[in-house]
Amino acid sequence: MNDIGTHAAEQPKQGDSTGLDLLACVRAATAAPSLHNSQPWRFRIAARTVDVYADPRRQLEVLDPAGRELLISVGAAVFTLRLAIRGAGHLSDLKLFPVAAEPDLVARVSVGRPMAPTPAAEALVAAIPHRHTNRWPFARSVVPADAVERLADAARREGATLTVANPVSRTTILNLSQEADRVLRSKGLYRAELARWTSPREGRGDGVPMTAVGPWDALEILPIRDFGLLQPRLDRAAAEFEPYPTIMVLSTDGDTRRDWVSAGQALQRVLLTATWQNLSTTPISQPVEIPAVRRLLTDIRAGRWAQMVLRVGYGRPATATPRRPLAEVLLPDDWEEP
């Protein structure tokens, strides 16, 4: 896939002299994935720039005390914003953490010169509204090698590494993931946090609705996040998931805040590339949420810090999760960080 650009209450429509609708690009960015669909981002639109802020009020303190997954989520939104600008016919310039005194200002995306989008960029743009986390069983079909290589190439283009687990390492990763899931489920604060982000309330613009939860894994192979933890087990059917899932580990060369944002950009490019290939995906974050388990997945000597585990395959269409209205994520031009 070709590069999309260069690195370095509803509001009225905002654009620039070229006719680019930056508000529409921000709306596309809000479709990015985030931990528990927390959507921890805010945007400020100027004439030809969009500032992307982390929203610490939406950080999950139990699962993500360091804010690593928060910045991965924001990074995914940054990539989607860049992609939307590219799809609208412009290059863009990216600066991470452009103002040292504003740590929550994660990225400044500036509109570059006009350039027609490539077919590859258009395909990724078209995939944005169709990318959904799939917590249902996948087919037992093998993911083709060329499809796997496209996913690995997508990660490389954003400075990350995507490694496919072989049968032995897959078993190890799944066992570690199950152990991490058991550790998390044993914590009362974790269960309470999970309950806050799983709500049956109609009209909620964030969190994970029960329609997106999926069934239990009858074989107990995959640690699908148990958003129904506080619901009676009989409310959810059990199903046999694929016994030999395709498991991939996304890693970065470092483990700084910049690396976390880069991991988010790589993750979203991978997910959209998978969607473009009619593949379903499930981020499995439990093993990277327990430090001791994450260390086992990290190869410091090789310079690879594990950031996310992914399950990839062919699955039934997944249910979309809600999004907050733009009025809740847009900042006024004169906003100053407290």
Rank of each mutant, 00 (worst) to 15 (best):
R157W: 02
L176I: 10
A147R: 15
A147E: 12
E158G: 03
L162S: 03
E149G: 08
V164R: 11
T171L: 10
E158M: 14
R170Q: 08
R156K: 15
L162H: 01
I173C: 05
S169A: 00
A160N: 00
R150S: 15
A152P: 02
T161A: 11
T172F: 02
R170Y: 03
A152K: 13
T161I: 09
D153P: 05
A154E: 06
R156L: 15
T161C: 08
R170H: 02
V164I: 06
R150Y: 00
I173F: 03
N175F: 07
A165K: 06
T171C: 03
V148G: 04
E158K: 03
T163Q: 08
T163D: 10
A160S: 13
T172H: 02
T171S: 10
A165I: 04
A155Y: 12
R170V: 04
R156W: 13
A152M: 11
T172Y: 05
R157L: 14
R157D: 13
L176T: 08
L151W: 02
G159E: 13
I173M: 05
T161E: 10
A147N: 14
D153N: 13
V148W: 07
A155T: 09
P167E: 11
R156C: 12
T172M: 04
G159K: 14
A147I: 00
L174W: 06
T163C: 02
S169D: 06
